[in-house]
Design a protein around this nucleic acid. Structure first.
Lengths: 112, 112
DNA sequence: TTCTTATGCATAATAAACTTAGGTATATAT
DNA sequence: ATATATACCTAAGTTTATTATGCATAAGAA
């Protein structure tokens, strides 16, 4: 990942966004989903993901539900009500940020 | 700055990009330019900027030229040849990153 | 059957990139 | 006079990630 450092700060928002559209997901699933959606561009490391999930849970934005599939443990996360509200805010911020970066880096591009 | 943490990792590329189009700039000028270009969205703090400039200089990507204007010191930075090459690479990375983020956060948007 | 890869969780040590908070100094506007 | 703008700088602390581990089960290859 050449640009891995670039997505610093946006990991939490990405997690919230995915949970918002997928309903519930478990950690490993999130890493695979992001990898797939970005054609391998963004690789979320587990050392970043799990602490992030725990923190979001501690902040009351996520709820956990443990499940056992194929004799393996899974921890499904989903947004709390507070989490849904926060997702709206953080997504707006991230979108605004992306627009700003776009405008800085390549003012010729237009976003629709 | 709600989203100030979001531009982590992209500061160096922003600096290089600005120097590429402006020819030469001094530190304070860069902070004002970015603020203006982003309508106040991105506020580069001096504690981030100056160490970044020094590091880019140490890496051989920037050259410095000291000037005195109105009895005040200015350090003008400009790209070295190596800096110009690096700028191309880093800009490409940043653009690719922006596309990925765009696609993750809002797949409905199209970029032209 | 053994070994590797994939799935699934987790944490500790380290590093990178910031913010915050200070410091110095001159010019300009109130 | 005093505050604001200009112009540079660094040190301490924080956030956020990477790297390196560790544990455990399932599936596939050698």
């Amino acid at each position: 990942m050449g640009n891995s450092k670039l997505y610093k700060g946006s990991l939490n928002t990405i997690i919230l966004k995915l949970l918002d559209e997928q309903g519930k997901m478990y950690g490993y699933e999130i890493t695979q989903k992001v990898k797939a959606l970005t054609q391998g561009e963004l690789q979320i490391t587990e050392g970043a993901l799990y602490p992030a999930l725990h923190k979001l849970e501690a902040e009351g934005l996520l709820d956990v539900e443990v499940a056992k599939v194929d004799n393996r443990l899974r921890k499904y996360y989903k947004l709390t009500e507070a989490g849904e509200k926060e997702t709206v805010n953080r997504l707006a911020e991230l979108e605004e940020f992306i627009r700003s970066m776009q405008n800085l880096v390549n003012p010729n591009w237009s976003i629709n």
